[in-house]
Amino acid sequence: MTNNEQGRTLDAGALKALAHPLRVRIYDLLSERGAQTASSLATLIGETSGSTSYHLRALAAHDLIREVPGKGTGRERWWERPKGRINLPGPDESMSPANRSAAQIVTAEFFRLRHQTLMDYLNRPADEQSEEWKDAGLVMTTMLDLTPEQMTELKDQLSAVVDAAVERYSGQEGRSDTRRVSLRAEIFDLPAASSRGLAPKE
């Protein structure tokens, strides 16, 4: 499958292929660190290369990852995640029970890893961060009162900023002065006041 501007929404087959914590971790590492072999992934994860090789083939069967053309040998194949956004369909009542379970596994593991990455960043000792990177990050939470239309407009504006940054800085892999960074944009409505046990506004 090819990625379009809106990204690829994973179908039932891809969701089931990804619905394993180790496969989500492999997929995440390929996004974070770039192309890897079964052996290098085994070292990073603490598994055998036979295990990572098996899971890599399962991911490749659904075009979630691909072999890097012209790199590696028959014994040591390199794998990468294709560029482009993927959309994870949330568990939905219209899904079959098996597909809904797969969606729950994938979503839970993706966000567990995402949270772990953030906590690793927040808990990183200052002496492990070089001076030029110490104040480069930003973790911010802002509360707003918005209508659904306003939130949709803000979501589209944030998406446009991210898409523009992806296009502007693409092709910089391998430069000595760059690092892989995690860019996160989150916007969602909080539960209604009544469901949180709060009194409504006067």
Rank of each mutant, 00 (worst) to 15 (best):
L183A: 09
A126F: 04
R75G: 14
R184A: 07
P97N: 00
L41W: 01
G34D: 03
K71R: 15
R57A: 13
L138C: 08
A98K: 12
A165F: 01
D28P: 00
A103Q: 03
L122A: 15
R23L: 00
A98Y: 00
D177N: 05
R77N: 09
D177Q: 06
T178H: 02
E93M: 00
S101A: 12
R25M: 08
P125C: 07
D189Y: 00
T178Q: 04
F110L: 13
G13P: 05
E186T: 07
L183F: 09
T73H: 07
L41V: 02
R33L: 10
W133C: 12
L30A: 04
T117Y: 02
E173Y: 04
S53N: 12
R8G: 10
L154E: 05
L158D: 03
W78S: 09
D189N: 06
A61I: 09
F188P: 01
S51K: 08
A136H: 08
A61M: 12
K16Q: 15
L10M: 02
P125N: 08
K83R: 15
L59H: 12
A160N: 10
K83S: 14
Q6C: 07
D156S: 07
M143I: 10
E167C: 04
L18Y: 05
R179M: 08
N87R: 14
P21G: 04
Q6I: 03
I187N: 02
G50R: 07
E202S: 09
L56A: 01
A19R: 11
F111D: 08
